[in-house]
Amino acid sequence: MIRFEHVTKRYADGTTAVDDLSFDVAEGELVTLVGPSGCGKTTTMKMVNRLIEPTEGRIFLDGEDISTVDPVRLRRRIGYVIQQVGLFPHRTVLDNTATVPHLLGVPRARARARAAELLDLVGLDPGTYGDRYPEQLSGGQRQRVGVARALAADPPVLLMDEPFGAVDPVVRERLQSEFLRLQSQVRKTVLLVTHDLEEAVRLGDRIAVYGQGTIEQFAAPATVLGAPATPYVADFVGADRGLKRLSVTPVEESHLEHPPTVRAGDAFDAPWAVLLDADGRPEGWVSAEHPEHTRQTPAPLPLGASLREALAALLQDDTGRLPVIDPVDGGRYAGVLTPAGIHRALRRAAPETPAPETPPAQKLSSR
């Protein structure tokens, strides 16, 4: 969907912001650009909608060279979300959200109906929030309106520049979760700029790690964390990168243990067993010593949940066992996850070498 071919941005004072940059972003893929301030990541993103013009090279959007497209028409095809949102203070939330459809000539009633749908999609009831003005919203609510506005014209590409950086950590985590839910539904092609590695890891299908003069690694989050391509990347992701991998490693059946399972009243020959209900869902733990007493299990975790969620649940229970269910099979019991299982999962998921998708380092400046 997006392709950079040997793109360079050089300013009049001789500073080279991006030098010979080449990479591809697939349709429906969310790529995060992460690195320290001044490394070229925002310049990269702004060249996609021609807020910054490249000096050399070409950028393609869905196969079309964007240098041949009128910049205004191009920008109306691309959603753009910035940290400070940029809502019009004199327009209501509904009218803010309908801005781009209005500019594209969509009838007012239809544009507002589309805006109401999108507000509902980002978790803001249009009946409650539609007639409010930006100053009447919290920072997190304004950010949601910004995302809704960017999606209003149904653009194929979404550019996001530090979109969640202006809110507190609790709200930021909620907004990230909401955006992941939204992306699972709309599947836009997204370039997201951030300086926060944890945000890049949580949101990105792939991560471009920018360094001083190079894109040091372009790969899936698990690869960046498990097999840093350069000493710079290893230092950037930190010594605790194994812990960060908890967020990007899903719980799989191969990670589970399979102790005995019983139904109510069954006898068993083991220190303890998992008690299942009539539909095969876990109800509790029973011991051979006191089979008449059932100990409640923690809330079961579904296959596919992250190991970070699993560890958090395990730490809230003193048994060291977490029942796991299969959401595809009606929530039936799949096995038990233990701390040893989490350790095995992380070791198995650790790539031994960088993935082949890592391109040659791209030269950037410190601008």
Score class of each variant (00 low, 15 high):
residue 165 G to C: 04
residue 99 T to P: 00
residue 308 R to G: 04
residue 323 P to C: 02
residue 147 V to Q: 03
residue 85 V to E: 03
residue 332 R to E: 02
residue 307 L to H: 07
residue 76 R to S: 06
residue 266 D to R: 14
residue 357 E to Y: 02
residue 170 V to P: 04
residue 168 D to G: 12
residue 150 A to C: 11
residue 117 E to H: 09
residue 211 G to Y: 02
residue 334 A to F: 05
residue 327 P to E: 11
residue 315 L to P: 06
residue 31 V to H: 01
residue 162 E to M: 13
residue 33 L to G: 01
residue 67 S to V: 02
residue 69 V to C: 05
residue 140 G to T: 08
residue 290 H to A: 15
residue 174 R to I: 00
residue 232 Y to V: 08
residue 302 P to Q: 09
residue 265 G to H: 15
residue 92 T to D: 07
residue 82 I to R: 01
residue 300 P to F: 00
residue 216 E to L: 08
residue 195 H to Q: 15
residue 325 I to V: 15
residue 5 E to C: 07
residue 57 G to R: 11
residue 38 G to A: 13
residue 353 T to V: 14
residue 292 E to Y: 01
residue 259 P to F: 10
residue 247 S to K: 04
residue 173 E to Q: 15
residue 286 V to F: 00
residue 293 H to L: 14
residue 350 A to K: 15
residue 96 N to H: 07
residue 359 P to D: 11
residue 242 G to C: 06
residue 3 R to V: 07
residue 110 R to Q: 15
residue 352 E to K: 11
residue 327 P to A: 14
residue 20 D to R: 09
residue 32 T to M: 02
residue 63 G to A: 09
residue 151 L to G: 08
residue 145 V to H: 04
residue 208 A to T: 09
residue 212 Q to I: 03
residue 333 Y to A: 06
residue 259 P to C: 12
residue 283 E to M: 11
residue 136 Q to S: 10
residue 176 Q to C: 12
residue 334 A to M: 04
residue 321 R to P: 01
residue 208 A to P: 09
residue 296 Q to E: 13
residue 193 V to K: 01
residue 47 M to D: 05
residue 77 R to Q: 15
residue 170 V to A: 06
residue 261 T to E: 00
residue 327 P to F: 13
residue 86 G to D: 04
residue 141 Q to G: 00
residue 86 G to P: 01
residue 279 D to Q: 14
residue 105 G to E: 01
residue 52 I to L: 10
residue 206 R to S: 01
residue 84 Q to L: 03
residue 250 P to G: 06
residue 122 V to R: 00
residue 167 V to H: 10
residue 340 A to Y: 05
residue 148 A to I: 12
residue 92 T to P: 05
residue 317 D to E: 13
residue 131 D to K: 13
residue 352 E to V: 12
residue 306 S to I: 03
residue 161 D to N: 12
residue 266 D to S: 13
residue 170 V to S: 00
residue 139 G to K: 01
residue 273 A to H: 02
residue 328 V to H: 14
residue 87 L to T: 07
residue 329 D to C: 04
residue 246 L to M: 13
residue 343 H to N: 14
residue 82 I to L: 08
residue 361 A to L: 08
residue 115 A to V: 08
